[in-house]
Design a protein around this nucleic acid. Structure first.
Lengths: 188, 188
DNA sequence: CTCCTCATGTAAGGGGTTACATGATTGG
DNA sequence: CCAATCATGTAACCCCTTACATGAGGAG
């Protein structure tokens, strides 16, 4: 039920094709939602068949034709109704944490390597978030004021990544200590 | 693919029925994974049919009989193999953030109320996590040492909830300012 | 008498992933 | 020649959610 409203939200800002949407997902809402192109196309067909979207075929030469979707009045109504509807709070759901939970099945050195790999990934996503954030603050002030609420999820993404990184660093330090202890010949 | 290993991890610690597992999920791994009883039963059947679990029917009187599952040698092998297998880092995926992103469709007062509701929920889950954490530190030291790695996901849960709460408080403050400004008759 | 706990399941539908399929244009 | 970009789709499968179904025993 969430994807359709993410799609409606983006098409409300600016109409576009499935292909366009996929890229806009990657560039703008990636920090709280993602979807494959198949999901996009399926959802667009559904929304169109339900009368929430208009579809205009745009013929191009040198390039494949595309279908540009935009909200109908019913689509806008549906979006507004949903925006006001209370939703349940989301909980973490991270497969890697199952691995950590079962971490005693792994030698500390290997656990350390895995964690380090994840830490690098999270540092990289933090960097992209901060770049996006910096770009936001380079926009003209009136745009910043208009878009400030849409910008808030990115700030949460940044804080969450920082929390993850802090946690991983502390865990790595502890694993280092554990390995040093295990590797010692006598002293305790 | 994740549920099966969460199930194997818990049954590796102690065998149990589907019903048992459901409760153990709620009490112990709830901060990073959850599942309904239907998922449990389905997964247990599958794991059993694949030879990763043994099943012993335990007849009880005064209560319904139960099926107690435990790992086979193949199950333990599968669990260990999976524990060593690199997994992709998880990204946030929160429907509420789509609502925030589309927040301009909502009057600030209503947005404020919704946020406050979510904030309360997150504060409540933080409280339960901290209670769980306190209980961990009341265990005997040798258990703490043995289980320290399995305890780490809870620490991440706590940090993540704190980050969420901090973010929401800052957003609420900003919404307050916004509403005060909008409610003023002249001064600005 | 009603609700809760214990204990297991079926069925239907929605959401998401992965693989396969097509076909022109541009860049190295 | 190979790869990437633009652009849309089908098919199969798995995972998750929700609703429905059964039935005994204990607490209020």
């Amino acid at each position: 039920m969430s994807l359709r409203f993410a799609v409606l939200s983006l098409l409300d800002i600016e109409p576009g094709s499935g292909y366009d949407l996929k890229r806009r997902f990657e560039r703008s809402v990636n920090h709280f939602w993602s979807a494959s192109h198949q999901q996009m196309y399926r959802e667009l067909h559904k929304l169109h068949s339900e009368g929430l979207l208009d579809c205009a075929e745009e013929l191009q030469d040198g390039r494949p034709d595309k279908k540009v979707y935009s909200l109908t009045a019913a689509g806008r109504t549906a979006l507004e109704a949903w925006a006001a509807k209370p939703a349940a709070a989301q909980k973490i759901r991270d497969p890697f944490l199952i691995q950590v939970f079962a971490g005693h099945h792994l030698p500390p050195a290997q656990m350390h390597a895995e964690l380090q790999r994840h830490l690098n990934e999270h540092r990289a996503t933090l960097a992209t978030y901060e770049a996006q954030n910096a770009r936001f603050y380079q926009r003209p002030p009136e745009q910043q004021q208009k878009l400030w609420i849409s910008h808030q999820p990115l700030l949460l993404g940044i804080e969450t990544e920082k929390a993850w990184i802090g946690w991983a660093e502390q865990l790595l330090a502890r694993l280092d200590a554990e390995m040093a202890e295990g590797g010692e010949t006598s002293a305790g």
